[in-house]
Nucleic acid binder design. Structure first.
Lengths: 217, 217
DNA sequence: ACTATTTTTTAGGTTAGTCTAAATATTATT
DNA sequence: AATAATATTTAGACTAACCTAAAAAATAGT
């Protein structure tokens, strides 16, 4: 397994979530910031190795073997994210690039020992579930704030838009990872929301709500 | 900096310790389990980048820049070894392969935070010193047991020969990493040593002593 | 249903890092 | 000092992973 093959499998896995159809070479090239022709090459190689199913012009999908391999990479990525945040005091936006490298370290023992050291976390700091060593994965309860109905209580677990402007806005409103949010009301006219965060009441636009990931409690 | 360039620098650094002359392409090829012709290619590339000094048929040596780069890789390798042993309960012989991968992770912040997390260790589990972030490195006081004079007290920090036969022998004699050893006498005839380990007295051959690294206390 | 547009694949080329075999330089031997 | 042995470099080839440009297939528009 090369570094590059692993990256392709990971991207195909992520694109497969939700869409049941074959993943197009264009979609993969886009995600990997490479060219469709390069993707065609690699995808043929992965098909020969039995990791994906590929028919010309029809897109690709993962085999069981390919999915398992992808899940083990995702597992490593998310465990390392927990490590960086909890043990090394990395901030939210700093973990990704480093985890992107660490996910390729090959040692089952390391992965399992790390999981134990972190006390068997079931989700990463963004609220995404961590596959176990058999590849089993908890169903996600992460949603966009805009999709939750009024009256519910939720916890902030991540952002969709991670631009400085948005992060600074959240900072100003004192909304952070782990903040408890009560959804008091939803305005039908513009889909804006009235929230209570840390005993402070506020109103946020639909655009804000559509970029904030929360998990229901 | 590619993975491969980093490995060459690291090997050249290790071979440079002790020998003040230029390092031969053959020596490098040997250490890397590759061919001398491949080494010539790479060494020319490293010379163009100003990391080594190279004149045809004369061997290579590191520039200041090259030495610093090598030291930063050694720093990462040894910090990760400490992490694996102390935090994840890896055993002595399991750390090397994994550290060999982890040493290539590129993130100054990660390295510095890891060092802090481990409480600024100054040597790794084999008794080798860990360079600081400026590349400063403590002088080694690690020696072979056979080179220490009678009467001294030492601590076992590593092995030169790591064959199962030798490790099993040490196990049987209850000599482990960290064991305190008193050197009671040295026999002139065959250079065998009389030792006290854990209040038990024993005699070991020169061959044994010449494969055991210790640090003087 | 036929043409225009877009998507995907094929063909051929590039770079990094490796190799083998041949050529050349250095070192050792007598 | 000349030759034999060894070490090192050069030349040319290979693979993995990428690219561009052209060809082929699929999709969309009228």
């Amino acid at each position: 397994m090369t570094y590059s093959e692993e990256n392709y499998l990971k991207v195909i896995y992520h694109l497969s979530i939700g869409s049941s159809k074959g993943i197009t070479t264009n979609a993969i090239a886009n995600e990997m910031e490479s060219k469709p022709s390069s993707v065609t090459d690699m995808v043929q190689k992965l098909a020969e190795k039995g990791l994906v199913i590929y028919k010309k012009y029809q897109g690709v999908s993962l085999t069981d073997n390919g999915r398992f391999t992808a899940l083990m990479i995702v597992r490593k990525h998310r465990l390392w994210e927990v490590f960086l945040l909890e043990k090394l005091d990395f901030s939210w936006d700093e973990v990704h690039d480093v985890a992107e490298q660490l996910e390729h370290i090959k040692s089952e023992k390391l992965t399992d020992k790390l999981e134990e050291f972190l006390d068997f976390p079931t989700e990463d700091p963004h609220g995404d579930p961590i596959p176990d060593r058999e590849g089993k994965i908890k169903k996600v309860d992460k949603k966009l704030l805009s999709e939750v109905e009024a009256g519910k209580k939720v916890i902030c677990v991540g952002v969709k838009d991670s631009s400085p402007a948005f992060l600074q806005y959240l900072d100003k409103q004192q909304i952070a990872l782990g903040s408890a949010i009560d959804i008091i009301a939803k305005e039908d006219f513009d889909m804006s929301l009235t929230l209570r965060v840390h005993d402070r009441q506020m109103t946020v636009s639909n655009k804000i709500a559509a970029n904030l990931f929360v998990k229901t409690v």
